[in-house]
Design a protein around this nucleic acid. Structure first.
Length: 452
RNA sequence: GUAUGCGUAGCUCAGUUGGUUAGAGUAGUGGUUUGUGGUUCCAUUGGUCGUGGGUUCGAGUCCCAUCGCGUACCCCA
């Protein structure tokens, strides 16, 4: 019997759950502080909702769920449709596991348009699934923690999201760098060389600028169908140096004849100006090479890198102008971010930066000395719980050594020893498991002591 | 989809140019201690060496296949 978990998925032990919940709670607190409300959506969505939103590569990575019942019934095995696996897939699978939380959210907004008021600020913390090859910081099932504002064009939203990113990583004591760009600037680049249809190829290639260098990026761009002439035209953009202000200034001149380029730069400039007044802890900078693969972004794009650990991006996001349009609700713009909780976990773990006091366990355990004693312990345990003190009674009357070991492993703070003697006196021998001290107390004294 | 590394006890791993009955630490169990853990000492359970085939007098070790896992690409949180 094979009892492994599926590749790229994990079991979470109690101690790991404590750490994970610590991350989720920090994120939740910040979201709530900014007035976002929580929603959830189903793990399963119709494939028609998911397909075509993430690019060609994304479609491949969707987990598809086989139709129930005898899905062969309606198939015509002579037709071409059953010989091409992609076409066959469409015939036998109509549902899939969600790939992210943004697309289901857009569907949610359209579906529940009468229940919500725009602008709508929601947060959502749920797992998503991708049929990827797992590796460091990459899983097939992982949690995204999304916050989105839909139904507002204001760039204040972009600013607020950056502020939230900064707040979350400050609270987690992780040093990060926030990188901003704008899809409109990338579109202007494509426009400049009249290769508008190659915008994805261009962005994907220049995304690697830092990683593989200018020459290799050029090689890749040529492979993707650009000409030498094209490359000469965009070279000055890719080789832009200096701080954010000077880069923006240079681009302003460069794109003076491009409407979309001007728009992108204006947006970027406004966001940066407002962010500056907030005095964030994290470095926020303009990065022209930041592309982000997801197809639906149209305006600002943002990505967060940990400066202390080599790891893929910890957070990503951007503005999408027409995601709800696909579901029949046009002209509504949204902007959002998503924290990758699992990658943040890996970073904190590698840096040993989880706080010490996040274990969440029983406060007091009654050791079990036998039938007579356990009856009294059960009653006392209930009294403690009434005071909101977590308590448990060890279920078996086994060697005390084993019981103590259990309490120790579980990091239980107090063990109550109630044997024949204590039962007669109506008192409890209370052992502090950290200091090792022992005291005789009655139940009311214990309540008082542990209440705070 | 491409490349590459690794599968030996529940877990972490040793195992020599192929050589007798495959080891250690840790966890588990029992005792030392019939009322005291983290931290004593002793004993003890546990493995078809991922699976199948081949080479050989002989394979955990070499070869082939297959399955599983990891890492780096592509792409992405």
């Amino acid at each position: 019997m094979n009892c492994n978990v599926v590749k790229g998925t994990r079991d979470f032990l109690p101690q790991q759950m404590n750490k994970r919940n610590y991350i989720f709670n920090v994120i939740k607190e910040v979201y709530k502080l900014h007035g976002f409300s929580q929603i959830e959506t189903p793990a399963l969505e119709n494939l028609s909702t998911l397909m075509g939103k993430y690019g060609e590569e994304g479609d491949k990575l969707l987990y598809k769920v086989l139709n129930s019942g005898n899905f062969l019934d309606k198939l015509d095995f002579e037709s071409e449709q059953t010989k091409d696996y992609k076409k066959l897939t469409n015939k036998i699978s109509e549902k899939g596991l969600r790939y992210d939380l943004t697309v289901p959210f857009a569907r949610f907004v359209v579906n529940n348009r009468n229940e919500i008021t725009l602008p709508f600020k929601r947060y959502q913390i749920q797992p998503v699934w991708r049929a990827d090859r797992p590796q460091k910081g990459r899983y097939r099932e992982f949690y995204q923690c999304d916050a989105d504002i839909i139904g507002s064009d204001s760039l204040l939203n972009e600013v607020e999201l950056c502020e939230m990113i900064d707040e979350v990583f400050t609270r987690l004591s992780l040093k990060v760098e926030i990188k901003l760009n704008n899809r409109k600037i990338l579109a202007a680049i494509a426009e400049l060389i009249q290769q508008e249809d190659k915008i994805i190829d261009i962005t994907v290639a220049i995304d690697k600028l830092e990683k593989i260098g200018y020459d290799k990026v050029c090689e890749e761009l040529i492979q993707r169908g650009l000409t030498k002439d094209n490359l000469n035209k965009i070279e000055p953009i890719l080789k832009l140096e200096g701080d954010t202000k000077s880069k923006i200034h240079a681009l302003k001149i460069f794109f003076q004849n491009s409407t979309i380029g001007q728009k992108g730069i204006e947006e970027l400039e406004e966001v940066f100006q407002t962010i500056e007044s907030l005095k964030l802890n994290s470095k926020v900078e303009f990065d022209i090479t930041l592309a982000r693969g997801l197809n639906y972004y149209t305006g600002a794009i943002v990505e967060v890198k940990c400066v202390e650990v080599p790891m893929g991006s910890l957070t990503g996001g951007g503005r999408y102008d027409n995601l709800t349009g696909i579901f029949g609700m046009p002209n509504i713009s949204g902007v959002g971010i998503s924290f990758g909780a699992d990658r943040i976990y890996d970073c904190l773990e590698e840096l040993k930066r989880f706080p010490q006091d996040i274990s969440n366990t029983t406060t007091l355990m009654f050791a079990n000395f036998g039938k007579q004693e356990e009856k009294q312990c059960v009653v006392w345990a209930k009294e403690l719980r009434k005071e909101n003190i977590s308590a448990e009674v060890y279920p078996d009357s086994v060697k005390l050594q084993k019981q103590m070991k259990y309490a120790n492993e579980k990091l239980i703070s107090y063990v109550a020893l109630v044997g024949e003697r204590e039962l007669e006196e109506g008192e409890i021998e209370l052992k502090n498991m950290i200091t090792g001290e022992q005291k005789k107390l009655n139940i009311d004294q214990i309540k008082e002591m542990l209440k705070s």
